[in-house]
Nucleic acid binder design. Structure first.
Lengths: 235, 235
DNA sequence: GTTTGTGAAGTTATTCACAGCG
DNA sequence: CGCTGTGAATAACTTCACAAAC
């Protein structure tokens, strides 16, 4: 049911795969046929051995002497990340952030089919965002029955985030991605991840305060265990 | 000029400080006077030794036998993170994400003073978002002269993100936080970090595909070196 | 000649386990 | 006793360096 090599891939590597994926997508679009680990490393702001090691976990897809076939490698990464699988995503909370996510290429252009948008505001319910109608949260369970979502995204105000999480779990969602600045609890079998839009800002603040920053980089959300928490207050 | 212990704190720890900060803020608000490493660990989805080790880098702020004084610890973390310092932030790109960030408690409630909002759309310029007028990007340099921003946030479409980064750097910004799905280049002295709103989704997809997820957690943007890339397409 | 793939070495981070303080 | 703070042990991750493949 799943691609070649399984959960043997180190978590740190898994977190970088989306980075390579994005870069390869850009390269393929630009018509670049092959890329070396050196080039890829420069674009990803990591070092070349790391790239090679990461990619080697997926198998041997490079050609010694010339590098990696961009299209071929991209296809394998997509497969490994499960981006060739249909993962219906529902978004609850259609404020500014919810709308940004709903419309985002990052979501829709990557196998993530946004299958439902929910809110409780009567001003929003019935409107369209990114070609999809916003429905009242009370229709969540019904909608989930017809088209069971794999992932529930929470972009509500923090005060209602836990309630929404409970309802998502109740509706059968197996994974929850929380953007609300609130610590959430879900049953053990549910995969919960939490993205905090202001953590990077705070980390920046730390390095600004201490003068000594660790070699500027393109940063984002890696680690699965040691992680952040909510932070942005969305509408 | 800077707090007690300097850049000696491991990067992984620094990335967790904002997590503790948020939890402590909630605890203080809730009137909880003390907290043990065990409790803090549970709330942060990490283990207790890690909490103790992380906090020990800041000094000895706990009381054996009873735990940590929430208010006291919070104050120290704030100081360590530089949250008691004025860091003027300008946001370029006032689409859905830009608006979410501009209005976010996460930004404004934490010492980050949003000092300017910029866009190029004539429909947006002149409007108010979160009590601040949106100005045309052409006024960036002028505004930066009057109130020099410490941090520039990019929430534009990817196509113009590099240009915006160049202008921010030109205007004297020392740190850039990029939310656009594009790899950016900045001069070596500028601290650049990149947040990708869809990386978590892709990591989730990986673990969904491979069945075997690594103990659900609250996730966010830790590592400084190994990092992510752009992803969400905002308006 | 170039660039991958990978053991081995080195580094950083996590967890253990317990002495020491309140 | 309870809970912190920390050295020592373990585990994870990164980087080196080079043989093998093209």
């Amino acid at each position: 049911m799943s691609p070649p090599r399984a959960g043997r891939i180190p978590e740190a590597s898994v977190a970088r795969l989306p980075v390579y994926q994005r870069i390869l997508l850009e390269l393929v679009r630009a018509g670049t046929a092959t890329v070396s680990s050196e080039q890829l490393a420069e674009l990803a702001h990591v070092n070349a051995s790391k790239v090679r090691k990461d990619l080697s976990f997926l198998g041997s897809f490079g050609t010694r002497g010339s590098g990696y076939d961009t299209r071929f490698l991209l296809a394998h990464i997509d497969r490994e990340l499960g981006l060739d699988t249909d993962w219906p995503v529902v978004i609850v909370g259609i404020g500014n952030l919810g709308r940004a996510l709903a419309r985002s290429q990052g979501f829709s252009s990557r196998g993530f089919r946004v299958s439902g948008l929910f809110d409780v505001s009567s001003e929003l319910v019935g409107t369209e965002v990114g070609g999809l109608a916003v429905r009242h949260l009370d229709h969540l369970e019904e909608a989930a029955g017809l088209d069971p979502p794999s992932i529930g995204v929470i972009s509500t105000p923090p005060s209602v985030a836990q309630d929404v999480a409970d309802r998502l779990v109740g509706a059968g969602v197996g994974s929850v991605l929380n953007f609300a600045p609130r610590v959430l609890r879900v049953p053990g079998h549910v995969l919960l991840r939490h993205v905090d839009l202001s953590i990077e800002l705070q980390v920046m603040s730390f390095y600004l305060s201490h003068g000594d920053h660790p070699g500027s980089v393109a940063a984002s959300s890696p680690l699965p265990h040691p992680v952040g928490l909510g932070a942005v207050d969305l509408a």
